[in-house]
């Protein structure tokens, strides 16, 4: 599949934003009394996440042929994951606004905790919906793989977890959150390695014979319907050289797993460094996600390629 920059930017940036929202929400829902939050960091965090999400959404608009009509995308939530994602994303902003309003305007602890919890749930749901857009597409076996949703969620949560201390308290970076981050990094790396191994084994594609209704015949291409590229071939018959893919996988893994691991280790060993080490780990992870997402598209084979 053609790795459209707009879509890659959207899923990665908004993913990070939703991840941060999810952790902030959880923190508000289950942490100490919100009034005792460290300064106004939490508010900045909420806004920073909103910016990430907003940039992501904006870039997703670039992907649309008719952005002005984007509002129509809210209507089909009963069947369409894209519609659900859109609704959930908006709901997230709603939840965030509530948290904000309630948090600033006084002290309604239950309401605030509730709103925080909601934000967390909606954020995660949004990320999962995004993932489901891809995971529900049977014509692209590499996307309908069972690890797609976990990986999308994993990236969001990892980046959120790495960013959270920056906005709340770096003290957090040493407790459960550190261990959580560690687990997320390792889990994510394992998931991606497994995923890549799976798709390398050849995704579960029908044969060309099946595609043309002659399952018992071996067919090779004689002539394409068009000698030059068109929408179908540009969009769905994108090919990335195996060599390149391997290299990029290494880069991605280094960025979203190895470097964050090192930085997490550093933060644990020298807590003072966590002030920059964790955000840096988040940035690495985000960069890794960009590469990973590019590959997620570039390496996915659409069944229409059977015809080409």
């Amino acid at each position: 599949m053609h790795p459209a920059i707009s879509v890659i930017a959207f899923t990665t940036l908004s993913g990070a934003g939703f991840g941060l929202w999810a952790w902030l929400g959880l923190r508000i829902a289950f942490g100490g009394p919100p009034g005792m939050y460290e300064g106004i960091g939490w508010a900045i965090g909420l806004l920073a996440a909103a910016v990430l999400v907003a940039i992501g959404l904006a870039s997703s608009f670039l992907h649309l042929g008719r952005p002005a009509r984007a509002w129509r995308a809210f209507s089909q939530w009963r069947t369409s994951w894209l519609s659900r994602e859109a609704l959930l994303a908006v709901a997230c902003f709603g939840a965030m606004a509530t948290v904000f309003a309630v948090g600033r305007s006084g002290f309604h602890p239950l309401l605030l905790r509730g709103a925080g919890g909601l934000l967390a749930v909606l954020s995660l749901a949004t990320v999962c919906s995004t993932a489901m857009i891809y995971a529900s597409l049977r014509p692209i076996p590499a996307w309908s793989h069972r690890l797609v949703v976990p990986a999308y969620a994993g990236f969001a949560l990892l980046q959120g977890a790495l960013l959270l201390p920056t906005f709340t308290s770096t003290a957090l970076a040493r407790g459960g959150l550190w261990w959580t981050s560690l687990a997320l990094v390792i889990g994510l790396a394992a998931a991606k390695l497994r995923y890549w191994a799976d798709i390398d084994r050849g995704p579960d594609m029908p044969t060309r014979g099946q595609a043309i209704g002659l399952p018992h015949r071996r067919a090779t291409v004689f002539e394409h319907p068009h000698t030059e590229a068109n929408y179908i071939t540009r969009e769905m018959a994108f090919v990335v050289a195996r060599r390149h893919a391997r290299l990029l996988r290494g880069v991605a893994l280094g960025l979203f797993a190895l470097l964050p691991l090192v930085l997490l280790g550093l933060a644990a060993a020298r807590p003072a460094t966590s002030i920059w080490a964790l955000p840096l780990a988040a940035a690495c992870s985000l960069a890794g996600a960009l590469v990973e997402r590019w590959l997620f598209f570039a390496e996915a084979k659409h069944m229409v390629t059977l015809y080409y």
Partner: peptide, 20 residues
């Protein structure tokens, strides 16, 4: 009504949808 999100073309296994 179409916003040109291209999702439907991804969902069609037969490559039957083309984006303008």
């Amino acid at each position: 009504k179409c916003i040109g999100c291209k999702l439907c073309s991804w969902a069609c296994p037969y490559g039957a949808r083309e984006f303008s």
